[in-house]
């Protein structure tokens, strides 16, 4: 089963970050509505099962 680790929207938290935990990452996605473009960042874990916005990383 695909997990966040395999997703192109998953960015691992650097080890020197204050909120670093092993396997923790940022899920960053681009959104757009009638008022413009924006990006959301949500904390996630690399083992989390993939969600509908999953896009396999290259």
């Amino acid at each position: 089963m695909a997990t966040c680790k395999d997703c192109s929207f998953y960015f691992a938290v650097p080890e020197n970050a204050g909120d670093y935990k092993p396997g923790k990452g940022d899920c960053v996605t681009q959104k757009e509505d009638a008022k413009g473009k924006y990006w959301l960042s949500k904390p996630t874990l690399n083992v989390t099962p993939s969600c509908p916005t999953f896009k396999k990383s290259k």
């Binding site: 909120d19 413009g36 473009k37 924006y38 990006w39 959301l40 960042s41 949500k42 904390p43």
Partner: peptide, 9 residues
């Protein structure tokens, strides 16, 4: 620590 962050164009 767990909230969603927003960045707009």
């Amino acid at each position: 620590d767990n909230s969603t962050l927003v960045l707009q164009d």
